[in-house]
Design a protein around this nucleic acid. Sequence first.
DNA 1: CCAGAATGCGAGCGACCACTCGTATTTGTC
DNA 2: GACAAATACGAGTGGTCGCTCGCATTCTGG
Lengths: 220, 220
Amino acid sequence: MPDTSQNEQKSEQPRRRQARGERRIAQLLSAAASVFCSTGYTAASTNAIAREAGVSPGTLYQFFPNKEAIAIELGDRLMHEMRDTYGEALAPVDPATPLEEAVGAAVDRFIDFNCAHPVFFALMHGPDVPGRMAEEHDALHATLLSRIEGLLSSYLTDAPPAELNRTAHMVLGIYKAGLELVLAHEGAEREAFVAELKNALIRYLRPLAEARGLTTTPAP
Amino acid sequence: MPDTSQNEQKSEQPRRRQARGERRIAQLLSAAASVFCSTGYTAASTNAIAREAGVSPGTLYQFFPNKEAIAIELGDRLMHEMRDTYGEALAPVDPATPLEEAVGAAVDRFIDFNCAHPVFFALMHGPDVPGRMAEEHDALHATLLSRIEGLLSSYLTDAPPAELNRTAHMVLGIYKAGLELVLAHEGAEREAFVAELKNALIRYLRPLAEARGLTTTPAP
DNA sequence: CCAGAATGCGAGCGACCACTCGTATTTGTC
DNA sequence: GACAAATACGAGTGGTCGCTCGCATTCTGG
């Protein structure tokens, strides 16, 4: 007997979505961002997310199979927006660009993004991420590291790979530490911490760049 | 920070403790350290701690009123040992001491302690600490900051207080970032990251120290 | 040696959480 | 308007976790 009405497509089920549904999804993701941001992933309850979005728990599960899928989708959308808006922030740069300029531009772009989307920091910094979230976390971390290595290789032309990797780790660590300080302050103080972060990175990197005989701008 | 060596509870009941009990407490704290270290505080279940210690859940609650008290006691003992062993690590130093030496000594001492007691980092770094743990966290943070400020004031004699505070925040942030990298590696790589952390801190601070006595950046 | 205190046990209680299900309402299409 | 699919609801389900309680066992002072 030909079963035309029910075709088992376990991998892809093109569920017809109405405009109302898309709106709900955006609403739920926004609510989830808010809750994740204030309590972290594990401590955030799906009921709290639904309440924040003004819907019932059942409605939430109409659009997401489980709690993790919410964070995954949120992370994917943030990554996508980050690529769209700041995709070139860490692209290999003209070696003639002064180190100060390259660091300053990269820091400004990433700080802007993280300030506009504090959830990103919350999701990527918390050690309380289960299963697939951890994979995404590691993937982003690896991506950032290799991008930083690419940037650094313009300035540290003949450093051994192990040293380059260590320096990239340290640069990312310093950035994360600075980001935490920046997010913890506002207004003029925030700006001061941004400048301090740039200083820390530039002072850390300049001796390495100078040792390779590359041009850096002297302090004006 | 007030010394809470004696219980100020409503009824002073000095429960007589046998040697067996003291042994159990140490056993339970060691098990808790292990579990906290691998899963974090919130994800750690009291049953898992009891199982790790080879006792029943009821026995655990014979010695600790609740889960938080385990972490508190663990933190207190670690703090005590830290004060005993490394109390002078951040004491004000002779201004004649070279910056490199002061930073290197302080980093070595703290890295040693944190490597010997990885729970300390796990408890102090996780954002998943409830109620009274957060207070201890903040208290330690403030103590470290003021100690760092004290140290820095030997080298930045005429920096405005706000700048001194910002620099101390940044130094602590860089240290924490470096500690994370150090704990994530072993052997020769670990040593390399320790050296890298010292480099980062020294390069960040040296320009400030060299500028002492000179006019600070003009105020806007 | 023997009361009583300290220690030890583990099934179980209440609370909370991720998630489900039967049902009611809205929306798109003919 | 009719019909089905999509959306919405919220009490309920199973499971986990922090913690308790009654009772057995071991230690200690007199």
